[in-house]
């Protein structure tokens, strides 16, 4: 009964909430518009935006040493999670069956597990960093902990359901993933989409000013 609800209606509900929520957030960001910049542009904004979008993937040299741990852990977590989310065999099958209708090559089982482990190492270290570092502890609010906790729980239940033989474990994983989908658009987890806008915006501003930042 509950299983059917999680597997069917609730899944579609959460998917709809996710899509509409993300669209709403993105449109509201776009509708906010840009501040009029009356100064004569020194160079084009779009090149600056594009450059900034990619250059920000690498930390600036003066913070590279101090933030080395968060840099490494952050990349471990994000790469692992990305590989896990889109290239794990069960996920590929699920997405192909429920959403896209076509599938793509999935990672072999061992690579899938290694990416899960990398993601777990990164996430645990980052979470501890958030809890123990005075600055991040002060900056963090409930939203951050809920987001981190939900992602962690989804990953953990996914790893507990690895045998793919016990329906309740799969449903637990799916249920938490659905909660995450519903929570996603209204939290800082939106950075998965908004990082493009924020980076391009500041890149465009800087580019127009002719600042190589």
């Amino acid at each position: 009964m509950i299983g059917e609800l999680i597997d069917g209606p609730f899944w579609y509900f959460s998917l709809v909430v996710f899509c509409i929520g993300v669209l709403f957030r993105l449109i509201s960001i776009l509708r906010a518009g840009l501040k009029p910049d009356l100064a004569v542009p020194r160079s084009g904004g779009s090149t600056g935006a594009l450059r900034n979008l990619f250059s920000r993937f690498i930390p600036r040299r003066d913070v590279a040493t101090r933030g080395r741990l968060t840099f490494v852990a952050g990349y471990l977590f994000h790469i692992g999670l990305f590989a896990l989310l889109f290239f794990a065999r069960p996920h590929v099958d699920f997405i192909a069956e429920r959403i896209t209708g076509f599938s793509w090559p999935a990672l072999p089982y061992w690579a899938f597990i290694i990416s899960a482990e990398i993601a777990f190492i990164g996430l645990l270290l980052l979470w501890l960093h958030r809890l123990l570092h005075p600055v991040t502890r002060l900056l963090s609010n409930a939203d951050d902990y809920i987001g981190t906790g939900l992602v962690f729980l989804v990953m953990l239940t996914g790893c507990l359901a690895l045998a793919q033989a016990f329906e309740p474990l799969r449903l637990l994983h799916l249920f938490l993933a659905e909660l995450l989908l519903i929570y996603f658009p209204f939290s800082s987890l939106m950075h998965a989409f908004t990082f493009v806008f924020s980076r391009s915006y500041s890149g465009a501003v800087m580019g127009r000013k002719g600042v190589n930042a």
Partner: peptide
């Protein structure tokens, strides 16, 4: 007889 103890039933 897979890696990470994935044996199946």
């Amino acid at each position: 007889e897979g890696a990470f103890g994935s044996r199946g039933k």
